[in-house]
Nucleic acid binder design. Structure first.
Lengths: 87, 87
DNA sequence: TCATTAGTTCGATAAAACTCGTACTTGGTC
DNA sequence: GACCAAGTACGAGTTTTATCGAACTAATGA
């Protein structure tokens, strides 16, 4: 998955997995200090790689990891991501 | 591992794992139709990422996957690579 | 309807990565 | 030594990817 090669995108998936307690989260929730267009770029990459899905809740577009699908297509990938030590 | 994001490097590691029967292999063994300098570039990337080691045998510099080290640092990564279905 | 807010799209620029030719180094052989 | 073969180092050109501003869309609420 080339989509996870980018450090910010890896962080996004990790935060969703490890800190989200089964909720979906909007872009703002992550607290990244980047312009909106940059964030859109990365969320789009994750979406198109099949790693997250997004649903509209009012104004927000909340993201969630596609756990089932990923575990089926790439067994072990999410475990790897979860235990990944940066660098 | 950003080093595995490149398709040729993923192929190199996969071939070493799946077709090498516990031998080390020189660049030529892989049969890639690329200039030497390009291959050096990719083998260097894999070496610096800690994914392979190389030993000199006469003229050749043979490569081998660092299975032990990788399994220790990133448990599950090599299984993932082995079962990876391209695209 | 108007204002606000979350996010997208587009386009331009910058940074990173890949490709590959040329020259060089190293090991082996005659 | 001269020669050849495997691989490296360097540099330049090309391609890919990231970054981000500005204009835009969609949903909400006053």
């Amino acid at each position: 998955m080339g989509a996870l090669a980018d450090p910010l995108r890896l962080t996004i998936v990790r935060k969703l997995m490890l800190e989200s307690e089964d909720y979906d989260h909007s872009c703002g929730w992550f607290g990244f200090d980047r312009p909106k267009s940059s964030l859109t770029h990365h969320f789009k990459a994750l979406r198109e790689a099949g790693l997250i899905r997004q649903r509209q809740y009012g104004l927000e577009r909340r993201s969630r990891v596609r756990t089932e699908d990923i575990n089926q297509r790439f067994p072990g990938l999410l475990d790897l991501v979860a235990h990944w030590h940066q660098d």
